[in-house]
């Protein structure tokens, strides 16, 4: 009898204990010693592990920067590969601390999922890839085409909008995993593969003959991609926002991974504030004052991260375009550290 009561009570309290407080992610992260980062598991240039389990990519580097800011160690991070369909549930349920997985900032997602978008770390737009042999030069010639895409993405909605608005017939074939989408397109099930333009460059590398495919000129949507955190935890939200801002501000101020130690001696007050030589900016967000120094030293500024993962010298070969700084013809801009 006593045993049964004990078990019952334990079960009851155990269940009640599920309702954990959601604030305090920073403390939780500090206590466990690493950041749990939800990322793409199969998108070269953005988030992908190699055969030894080392993760690389632009989205991955954001999480490393976060770890560098919190722990002074870019490797104090663990990655969870998430499909487009799983990602928000994983973040909402607390399985990951931050979601950095080529995720588009939209109003529905921001306002109704109990999530907050940290900012934009890549300005993207949706594009189309077709076989050269199909002999089309514009998306407007695609009436009657079959389109392969991912379930649970903005892509799925944009393609419907676009074809409908232009009075074109189409058939959508939606798979859960990116690898299956590209395999089906490669097999010839679809005439068109559509996703974010950055994704097109990345996925094209997986095709049997990448040279037989071309990307059409139309960009049919705005896809501002950025990290996401749970709503209602302002402290963790701030940490994430300012890590992103620091990465962008560092490029703006000419501070990069190679020269950051020299820059410590700079007498430009903006640089001194960024690197913690002046002020207590790190403490304001619950970190140490060399938080941004660590980020730049260990991971780099925006240009370092972009060039390393997706830039012209990588297999993806993407130029900065919209993602250049505001002062260099792009729209990348971050509020000042002061």
């Amino acid at each position: 009898m006593k045993k049964i009561i004990k078990v019952a009570l334990a079960a009851a309290f155990g269940l009640a204990g599920v309702a954990t407080a959601q604030a305090g992610t920073l403390q939780d992260v500090q206590a466990k010693g690493f950041v749990q980062c939800g990322s793409n598991g199969s998108l070269p240039g953005f988030g992908v592990p190699d055969d030894q389990g080392n993760w690389t990519g632009l989205d991955v580097d954001y999480c490393r920067a976060l770890a560098a800011a919190v722990f002074g160690d870019p490797n104090a991070v663990k990655f969870t590969p998430l499909s487009a369909k799983e990602r928000f549930t994983a973040l909402q349920s607390g399985e990951v601390d931050v979601l950095s997985r080529n995720t588009t900032w939209t109003m529905t997602r921001d306002a109704s999922l109990g999530l907050n978008f940290v900012g934009v770390d890549y300005y993207d737009g949706q594009g189309f890839m077709v076989r050269k042999s199909l002999d089309v030069s514009s998306a407007l010639e695609l009436s009657g085409a079959a389109v392969c895409t991912n379930t649970g993405t903005t892509t799925e909605l944009n393609v419907a909008d676009y074809f409908r608005a232009n009075n074109l017939d189409y058939e959508v074939v939606a798979f859960e995993k990116g690898d299956e989408v590209i395999a089906a397109y490669d097999a010839g099930r679809c005439d068109v593969f559509t996703t974010d333009a950055s994704g097109l460059y990345a996925e094209r590398l997986k095709l049997t003959n990448p040279d037989e495919h071309m990307i059409l000129p139309e960009i049919i949507s705005k896809e501002p991609l950025g990290p996401v955190v749970r709503q209602g935890d302002d402290e963790w939200f701030n940490v994430n926002k300012w890590v992103l801002n620091a990465i962008i501000n560092a490029e703006d101020l000419g501070v990069n991974q190679a020269n950051v130690d020299q820059m410590l001696g700079s007498d430009n007050p903006e640089i001194r504030r960024l690197l913690g030589a002046e002020g207590t900016f790190g403490e304001m967000i619950g970190l140490s004052n060399d938080w941004a120094y660590n980020v730049i030293k260990m991971v780099g500024n925006y240009a370092d991260i972009f060039d390393r993962n997706v830039g012209p010298d990588t297999p993806l070969g993407i130029s900065r375009g919209l993602n250049a700084l505001w002062s260099k013809g792009g729209i990348l801009y971050a509020p000042p550290i002061r």
């Binding site: 487009a84 369909k85 928000f88 549930t89 909402q92 529905t108 997602r109 109704s112 999922l113 379930t151 649970g152 993405t153 799925e156 909605l157 074939v173 939606a174 798979f175 859960e176 995993k177 299956e180 089906a184």
Partner: peptide, 24 residues
């Protein structure tokens, strides 16, 4: 079916619809 893009209940409703609305 969700693995091969056949639009069954799990693929369309608990897949796409869930993701677009967030009403898990």
């Amino acid at each position: 079916a969700v693995a091969i893009a056949y639009p069954d209940l799990v693929s369309t409703f608990t897949g796409t619809a869930l993701n677009q609305t967030g009403r898990a």
